[in-house]
Each structure stands twice: as structure tokens, then as C-alpha cells.
């Protein structure tokens, strides 16, 4: 009997404690002080809006923005230089001076053998 009474009193004590804790928790936000956001919100807002306006830009401005990136600009420049070198090389402009001279000479020889001199015109074979 005594045990039952003890159990009952401990249960009721626990319940009253729980009720008290619940009430304390519900009242814990009474007089709460408003929290402040991190400083410079307006500056961050302007930056965020700038980013959004960049994202909302037209196709041409997006292309321009893409090309403006240093990595892209340097890559395009390198590709252009490589293409130029390839074209010049394939046209022979970059071959050595000696070859150029010999080519010129050979051309000169070709021309020379076709020249008709006075001797040739006077001594024509029948």
C-alpha cells in the first residue's frame, strides 16, 4: 500500500515538473530581443542584384561576358596565333632563306632558257 502511494506521489511530482518545464519553455521567448542580420546588407543586396542582372542578360551580352573572361580571351588569342603560324608555314613563308633563293634561281633559269637571243634568230635551222 505504501509502495503504491509512493509511486503515485512520484508520478504526480514528475507530471507537475513536466507541466512546469512545458510552461517555462512556452514562456522562454517572452521579451526576446530581435536578432540583427550581418552588417552591410544593402551592399550585399546590390551585389546580388548585379549578379542576377548579369544572369538575366541577353544572348549577345552573355556571349560578350563569356569572351571577356581572361582564360577564354587568352585561349582564343593562342588559337589565332597557331592558325596564323600554320597558314604561313603551309604557304612556305616561313621556310629558310636558302630555299627561297634557290627557288628564285630555278625560276630564273626556267625563264632564261626560254629567252630568244639575236644569235638564235639569225641562225635558224632550216
Amino acid at each position: 500500500m505504501k509502495n503504491i502511494l509512493n509511486n503515485h506521489s512520484s508520478t504526480s511530482k514528475k507530471m507537475s515538473n513536466i507541466n512546469k518545464k512545458t510552461a517555462d519553455a512556452l514562456n522562454s521567448i517572452a521579451g526576446i530581443v530581435p536578432a540583427m542580420p550581418a552588417p552591410f546588407l544593402l551592399t550585399r543586396l546590390h551585389a546580388a542584384m548585379h549578379r542576377i542582372s548579369e544572369n538575366d542578360a541577353t544572348v549577345w551580352s552573355k556571349i560578350a561576358l563569356f569572351l571577356k573572361r581572361p582564360a577564354v580571351a587568352f585561349t582564343i588569342l593562342l588559337v589565332l596565333i597557331c592558325v596564323n603560324i600554320f597558314v604561313l608555314n603551309s604557304n612556305g613563308f616561313l621556310s629558310s632563306k636558302k630555299n627561297v633563293v634557290s627557288k628564285v634561281n630555278s625560276n630564273g633559269y626556267d625563264i632564261a632558257i626560254n629567252v630568244t637571243s639575236i644569235y638564235d634568230t639569225e641562225n635558224q635551222e632550216p
Binding site: 518545464k21 519553455a25 521567448i29 521579451g31 526576446i32 530581443v33 530581435p34 536578432a35
Partner: peptide, 19 residues
Amino acid sequence: DHPGVALDKKEDARVLFMA
């Protein structure tokens, strides 16, 4: 932990925010 809650009520407030 809401930064505006008084120090002695922090624990109760934490449970309340969970609820």
C-alpha cells in the same frame, strides 16, 4: 539557439524552437 533569447532561458527556448 536564437541569439535574442536571454542566457538563462536558452535551453528552454531551444526545446520550444524544436517544437
